[in-house]
Design a protein around this nucleic acid. Structure first.
Length: 334
DNA sequence: ATCATTTGACCTGG
DNA sequence: CCAGGTCAAATGAT
């Protein structure tokens, strides 16, 4: 196990090295391709070892197998909006602007067709940054289609939610221990936990959170974690979330979000240098996780092995080597 | 030194 | 009064 963990850490390091050299590797697809393959190989070997380990561990069978079964039984429109579509941020601004201005009445397929071609054009045409050109080599047209399609669905859901709830996040939050009287401005999401690594850590959702409390909850065998946005002090962002493992399925987390992230869309935020979900200024602030965010998870929000797990999933999703893109689910339960 | 997490105490709505 | 939400000092990690 130790050796496998070292291997994953090594993979993360390779990925970070690649990211830091992306600007220098613009126009060298062969080098980029080779680097990506190296990284993939490291994670593939790690994944194989972990799979063997899981096979030989009887006690972990139930929790580890429940996730894929659960996920494959769900319709595609319930897939998680964050894990799988983060690379859309790399298609900014074209695809996202198109998605944001997409009227709910528009024909979805028609929109997808135009967004897809626009996205492809953008990815292939942007050779001015290493980031875009590397993505062009990594992403297949199918994965772009999935990204755009599911992201559009998620945006529609969000739009619907915001029109139902109104746009006054964080209003009326009192000073201390003031419980919310109703379910306003509250979204509950069920998310499958990591399939490897530290299973107790909920999947990263693209934002950076700071844990400020944990509480044993009556009738639940798992404690509830309380998180607020890391940028609360910097941007005054009032977004919070509570994370609760389910009793009947410990591999699934119920994440309840309160408030909205002002750190990502406020004019104040845009004038500062630290974007919410991306640690570089190359990608516009965007609430969906970016390649660089994944690359840097190991040294920021997830100091444990979940960083390697997330990176592995992204790599596999991007290269079509896994069906994990369908294995994280969302249920919007307003 | 700085920042994140842990955890017991404190506070409040029901 | 109690369960749940938050605070803040202590502790740990980098």
């Amino acid at each position: 196990m130790e050796e496998t963990l070292s291997m994953i850490i090594h993979g993360c390091k390779l990925a970070r090295d690649l990211e830091s050299n992306l600007a220098n590797l613009t126009g060298q697809p062969n080098v980029l391709s080779s680097s990506c393959n190296d990284i993939l190989r490291v994670f593939e070997v790690s994944a194989n070892r972990l799979n063997e380990l899981m096979m030989s561990t009887t006690m972990s069978n139930s929790s580890l197998t429940s996730s894929p079964l659960l996920l494959h039984s769900l319709p595609p429109q319930l897939h998680h909006p964050v894990f799988d579509y983060g690379e859309l941020s790399l298609l900014e601004p074209h695809a996202v602007v198109a998605a944001r201005t997409c009227s709910p009445d528009n024909n979805k397929q028609e929109w997808l067709r135009s967004s897809y071609s626009q996205a492809l054009e953008q990815v292939q045409g942007h050779e001015d940054t290493g980031r875009h050109s590397s993505v062009a080599h990594l992403l297949s047209s199918n994965s772009i289609t999935n990204i755009v399609e599911d992201h559009a669905y998620y945006l529609q859901q969000q739009q619907q939610y915001e029109s139902n709830v109104g746009s006054d996040p964080g209003k009326g939050t009192a000073q201390r221990a003031r419980k919310r009287k109703d379910g306003a401005d509250k979204r509950a999401v069920r998310v499958a936990g990591p399939i490897m690594g530290n299973l107790e850590i909920p999947p990263d959702d693209g934002f950076t959170w700071r844990k400020y409390g944990q509480k044993e909850i009556l009738g639940s065998s798992f404690p509830r974690g309380y998180y607020r946005c890391t940028h609360k002090s910097f941007y005054g962002c009032e977004a919070k979330k509570q994370v609760q493992r389910l009793d009947d399925d410990p591999n699934t987390f119920e994440v309840t979000y309160y408030g909205h992230h002002s750190c990502c869309n406020s004019s104040e935020a845009s004038n500062k240098t630290i974007p919410c979900s991306s640690s570089t200024a190359m990608v516009p602030p965007h609430p969906y996780i970016s390649l660089s965010t994944y690359m840097q998870l190991g040294e920021s929000s997830s100091p444990d092995m979940s960083a390697g797990g997330n990176l592995l999933r992204m790599m596999m999703a991007m290269t079509g080597t896994s069906t994990y893109t369908t294995s994280t689910t969302t249920t919007i339960t307003n």
